[in-house]
């Protein structure tokens, strides 16, 4: 009797383990190959997303009270600083507008309807963050119903923050660029060297709070503080999204080992509203 009971337990444990491994393999293959998750995944996602809106709302409220308080304390200092910046901003804005209209006219003359820099914007707010050390992932409140597609780039108001990895009807998952995940997709970025040539590369990983750009195409010198943006090469990311600024360049031997350390423009730990940039070409 005792032995039969033990065997039954063992069988249950083995079956559970096998089912678990099968489910893991299944969801990884869906994540890598399919555009939308399967029914068993999307069902849970839709319903969880709905309930989460009710739970995360008060939590966000409480947190925003705390932030408002600290914000009030810093407001005076910030105000002084911002006053000096605002004049500069207005002139840049005007310049930006004229350049944009000029660009439009030039494109028209060239009969260039769509270029790599064109993208549609979809705004969403952040529902939640995965409570896990191994995935820097957030869930945003828009999905395929509003046109989000897999692998689109995601921006905060400061700069690039990540890439859409899973799209459901009413919510989608975004993997942040700071993620350590070995199998995540890489962003193609470009930076202008001090001699004016464009250097292409990939975001290959993170080092501390900095992003590391590797696989660099040229050995030209890069100045500290140069802005880094997406290059639009390799498919789904539009060109010209702001990634960050160069902090340091490490060269060990030849240019293939050259690494550029980038300070990301966006604060990955304070994201509430995001924009999904979907390329239009």
């Amino acid at each position: 009797m005792q032995k039969a009971f033990f065997n039954k337990k063992l069988v249950i444990i083995l079956i559970t383990l096998i089912i678990s491994f099968l489910l893991i393999a299944f969801s990884i293959s869906v994540r890598n190959n399919k555009n939308t998750p399967s029914f068993i995944q999307s069902f849970g996602n839709e319903s969880a997303g709905l309930v989460d809106r009710a739970v995360s709302f008060p939590a966000a409220g409480i947190s925003s009270i705390g932030k408002a308080f600290t914000g009030l304390m810093n407001a005076y200092q910030e105000n002084e600083l911002l006053k000096t910046k605002i004049d500069n901003l207005a002139s840049t804005k005007v310049e930006n507008q004229t350049l944009k209209s000029e660009n439009k006219q030039l494109k028209k003359q060239l009969k260039l309807d769509k270029s790599l820099t064109d993208y549609t914007k979809i705004s969403a707010y952040v529902l939640t963050r995965t409570p896990s050390s191994w995935q820097n992932q957030i869930v945003i409140s828009q999905g395929s119903n509003s046109g989000v597609t897999k692998n689109s780039a995601v921006l905060s108001d400061e700069g690039l923050i990540g890439r859409v990895t899973e799209v459901n009807k009413t919510n989608s998952k975004v993997e942040l660029i700071t993620t350590q995940n070995d199998s995540s997709n890489r962003f193609a970025v470009q930076v202008t060297s001090s001699s004016g040539s464009v250097i292409n590369g990939l975001i290959t990983g993170t080092s501390g709070s900095y992003l590391v750009m590797g696989q660099i195409t040229s050995s030209d010198k890069i100045k500290k503080g140069t802005t880094v943006m997406t290059s639009g090469l390799g498919g789904t990311t539009p060109q010209g999204l702001y990634v960050g600024t160069v902090i340091k360049v490490s060269t060990s031997g030849d240019s293939s080992n050259e690494k550029v350390y980038i300070k990301p423009a966006a604060d990955m730990n304070n994201i509430n509203i995001v924009t999904v940039a979907k390329r239009t070409d």
Binding site: L17, I19, R31, S132
Partner: peptide, 17 residues
């Protein structure tokens, strides 16, 4: 566990077990 897996991580089969 199912909701945790599908909503947070996207990898089914961990918390569900």
């Amino acid at each position: 566990g199912y909701f945790f897996d599908t909503y947070y991580t996207g990898i089914l089969g961990l918390f569900i077990v």
